[in-house]
Amino acid sequence: MDVFMKGLSKAKEGVVAAAEKTKQGVAEAAGKTKEGVLYVGSKTKEGVVHGVATVAEKTKEQVTNVGGAVVTGVTAVAQKTVEGAGSIAAATGFVKKDQLGKNEEGAPQEGILEDMPVDPDNEAYEMPSEEGYQDYEPEA
């Protein structure tokens, strides 16, 4: 019985440690998101679009440190934060509304985080759909 109880105690310690790591990862992701939003706020009209992409990228980098179902929630929060940063930029006159959601080359930025393969159960990952990809044929 002692062996059984000791095993359960060790398992509990492992769960607590994993929860603490997840909590730490979420806190880091939130900190990076805040950094990115402050970065966007300090940019001029020309830099705002690039700044919004930076927020998304920093958040995406930190999301990889967070495991399990938390990833889905962090990704949703990050996307809403990026959308909010863009709205703030438009409201303050840093950028025109028609410039939001495009990178410096004018290509749409939507789907940055949505296409990231995420499995809350950590069982399997699927690649994003290939609808947006084109076949590449090298020139002879």
Rank of each mutant, 00 (worst) to 15 (best):
A69I: 15
Y125P: 13
G106V: 10
Q99P: 13
L113S: 09
E57M: 11
K10V: 05
G25N: 06
V82Q: 06
D98W: 14
K10R: 06
N65A: 03
F94E: 04
E46A: 14
A11D: 00
V37W: 11
K23E: 00
V55T: 03
M1L: 03
V74Q: 02
D135P: 07
E110Y: 10
P120Q: 08
Q79H: 05
H50Q: 01
K58G: 01
Y39V: 05
F94A: 03
A30L: 15
V66R: 04
K23W: 12
A89T: 06
G93W: 14
G7P: 02
D2H: 14
M127I: 10
K21E: 01
K97D: 12
M1Y: 00
V55M: 12
Q109V: 15
K23T: 05
P128M: 03
A76C: 09
P108G: 14
K96A: 14
E35K: 11
E130I: 08
G41V: 12
K6V: 03
S9C: 05
L100Q: 05
T22D: 03
T92W: 15
G106Y: 04
M5C: 00
F94I: 08
L100W: 06
M116E: 15
V15P: 00
G93K: 05
V77L: 08
M1W: 00
V49R: 12
K32Q: 05
T44A: 04
T81G: 08
Q109M: 10
E126Y: 13
P128V: 03
K34S: 00
E131H: 09
S9P: 00
A30S: 01
P128W: 01
K97C: 09
S129K: 07
E13G: 07
A89K: 08
D119C: 08
A53M: 11
E105N: 14
E28L: 11
A11R: 00
T44Q: 00
V16W: 07
V37T: 00
A29F: 01
G106L: 09
G47T: 15
K60C: 10
V95Y: 05
G47I: 07
S87L: 07
A27L: 13
H50W: 10
G106R: 01
G51Q: 02
V26C: 04
L100D: 14
A56M: 14
M5Q: 02
A107L: 10
A85E: 03
N103H: 14
A17M: 10
P138T: 08
N122Y: 03
V63I: 09
E83V: 01
G47V: 03
A91V: 05
K96C: 13
G31P: 01
I112V: 15
N103G: 13
T54K: 14
T33D: 00
D2Y: 13
E139A: 05
V82I: 12
S9I: 13
Q109P: 15
V55P: 01
K10M: 02
E123Y: 05
S42N: 12
T44P: 01
K34Q: 04
A140E: 06
A76Y: 12
G41E: 01
G25C: 15
K96V: 13
G7E: 05
P128N: 10
A27I: 04
P138A: 10
A17N: 15
H50T: 11
V71A: 10
G67S: 12
A27Q: 12
T59G: 05
G68R: 12
V77K: 03
V52A: 08
D121W: 06
I88V: 06
L8V: 05
G25D: 03
G14P: 01
E110F: 09
D98R: 05
E123S: 11
D135K: 14
L100Y: 09
G51A: 05
A89W: 12
V52M: 02
Y39C: 04
V16E: 04
E35M: 12
Y125W: 13
E105M: 01
G93A: 01
A11T: 08
P128Y: 14
G47D: 03
D98E: 06
G7N: 13
E104S: 04
E139L: 15
K96G: 04
Q109S: 07
K32L: 09
G67N: 01
S9Y: 03
Y39L: 03
K21G: 00
D121G: 13
A30N: 00
V82N: 05
D98G: 13
T22S: 15
Q99G: 09
V77F: 15
K97G: 10
V77N: 02
S9A: 02
A89R: 11
E105Y: 15
T44W: 13
G41S: 08
H50S: 06
T44S: 06
V40M: 09
A85H: 01
V48Q: 00
Q62D: 04
E110R: 04
K58F: 02
G67E: 02
S42W: 15
S129R: 10
E13R: 02
H50E: 04
A91C: 12
K10P: 00
P120K: 05
E20D: 06
T75G: 14
A89D: 03
E104P: 15
G73E: 05
K23Y: 09
K34G: 03
G47N: 11
A53V: 13
E20I: 15
I112E: 10
Q99D: 10
L113H: 10
P138Y: 09
V49M: 11
E126T: 13
V82R: 07
A18C: 04
K80E: 03
T75F: 15
Y133I: 09
P108M: 06
L38C: 12
K6D: 06
A124N: 15
D121K: 09
D121P: 15
V49E: 10
G86H: 10
A17G: 11
E57F: 09
V49P: 03
K10I: 11
G67R: 03
K43I: 13
I88R: 03
D2W: 05
E114Q: 00
E123K: 08
Q79K: 05
T44F: 08
E46K: 13
E20A: 10
N122P: 05
V82P: 04
Y39Q: 07
G93C: 10
V52Q: 00
T22Q: 00
V95N: 12
G51R: 06
S129L: 15
A107C: 07
G31N: 14
G84C: 01
M5W: 01
E139C: 14
E83R: 10
D119A: 02
K34M: 13
E28V: 15
K34V: 08
N65D: 02
K6S: 03
A76K: 13
T59F: 12
N103P: 04
A69P: 04
N103D: 05
P128K: 09
G68Y: 11
A85W: 03
E123P: 03
V40F: 12
E130S: 10
V49Q: 15
K23V: 11
G86I: 13
E110G: 06
V55H: 01
E13H: 13
V48I: 14
S87V: 04
Y136D: 02
L100T: 09
P138K: 11
M116Q: 06
E46G: 07
V48R: 01
A30P: 02
G86V: 02
S9D: 10
K32F: 13
D2Q: 11
K34T: 06
G84W: 14
K60Q: 05
L113Y: 08
A27F: 15
V74G: 02
E130L: 04
Q24C: 08
G106I: 10
D119R: 10
A53W: 04
E114W: 14
E57W: 09
E13C: 10
E20F: 11
S42E: 14
A19R: 04
G41D: 00
L38Q: 02
D2R: 04
E46H: 04
G84N: 06
K43G: 01
G41F: 14
Q62V: 05
T44N: 02
T75M: 09
S42Q: 07
A140P: 13
E57P: 03
L100S: 07
P117Q: 08
G47C: 14
V118P: 05
K97S: 08
K96L: 08
A27Y: 14
G47P: 02
K58V: 07
E126A: 04
V37M: 07
E61K: 11
V66D: 01
G73W: 15
A76R: 07
A107E: 11
E57D: 04
K43A: 07
G84Y: 07
V55S: 01
V82D: 03
T33R: 01
T44M: 15
K102H: 04
K60H: 07
V66E: 01
V16I: 13
S9Q: 07
E123Q: 07
G47S: 14
M5V: 08
V48C: 08
N103C: 15
V55D: 01
Y136F: 14
N122V: 06
E130W: 07
P117E: 13
K97T: 15
H50K: 06
K102T: 14
M116T: 05
